[in-house]
């Protein structure tokens, strides 16, 4: 247990500290790198909670894919973040106010008699004899398959929408046709010509 407690405090401290650095860092690349560190520690907390599937998915999706895109963008953009941060003074007070309000709401919500709905309790805990990957699979693909499919459909629409909005067919672009290239034979491209001396080849 003491190892678990130590691990919890390690992950939680690093998570909070790196979260603070994400916001305060001057260099945006550092911000993204510390964001990645924060994701990692969140994954560690998931593992401590026994949600190993979520932990791995967090690392694969957020660290392995989303944060790579962030890093790409931040490294290639030449954004002067000091310039952007100039207005921080004027927004500080309203920002703190909204943050404090949200925090107070959270405290009220959690400290009041907060509990699971009775029908949600059996679904919340991992059933005996199943790993939590299998339990999640059962819930997503067996119990709530239609909701899951509907969510998938929404994502598909978003994907098609993004493609339709950005795809432009331009005229006069010579595209590579891989099949014609592969199926080209030496006989299509070469000819043996018997060149006579002094006459050359036409």
């Amino acid at each position: 247990m003491i190892l678990q407690a130590l691990a919890f405090y390690l992950f939680a401290t690093v998570l909070l500290a790196s979260g603070v650095v994400v916001v305060t860092s001057r260099n945006p690349v550092y911000s993204v790198l510390f964001l990645i560190l924060a994701f990692f520690n969140a994954a560690g907390l998931f593992v401590l909670l026994g949600a190993e599937f979520l932990a791995m998915i967090l690392v694969i999706v957020y660290v392995g894919a989303v944060a790579v895109l962030f890093l790409f963008v931040v490294m290639m953009l030449d954004v002067d973040f000091a310039e952007l941060k100039k207005g921080v003074q004027s927004y500080l007070l309203p920002g703190l106010g909204i943050g404090g309000l949200l925090f107070a709401e959270l405290v009220i919500a959690v400290s009041a008699h907060w509990h699971f709905a009775p029908h949600a309790v059996p679904a919340a805990a991992t059933p005996k004899g199943l790993t939590n990957t299998a339990a999640l699979g059962h819930i997503l693909y067996t119990d709530y398959i239609y909701y899951f499919q509907a969510a998938g459909l929404v994502l598909l629409v978003a994907m098609i929408g993004a493609i339709v909005l950005t795809l432009r067919h331009r005229d006069g672009v010579r595209r590579q046709k891989a099949w014609t290239q592969i199926s080209r034979e030496p006989s299509d491209a070469m000819a043996m010509v018997d060149a006579k001396p002094g006459e050359g080849v036409e």
Binding site: V29, E52, M56, I60, V63, A65
Partner: peptide, 24 residues
């Protein structure tokens, strides 16, 4: 661990950071 394959996949998807960070 129960999610060994996912762990391997996660670690190998992190390999890209060594590359981008080094290049940048």
């Amino acid at each position: 661990i129960n999610v060994g394959v996912l762990y391997l996949f996660a670690i190998s998807s992190l390999g890209v950071y060594g590359v981008i960070m080094g290049g940048w």
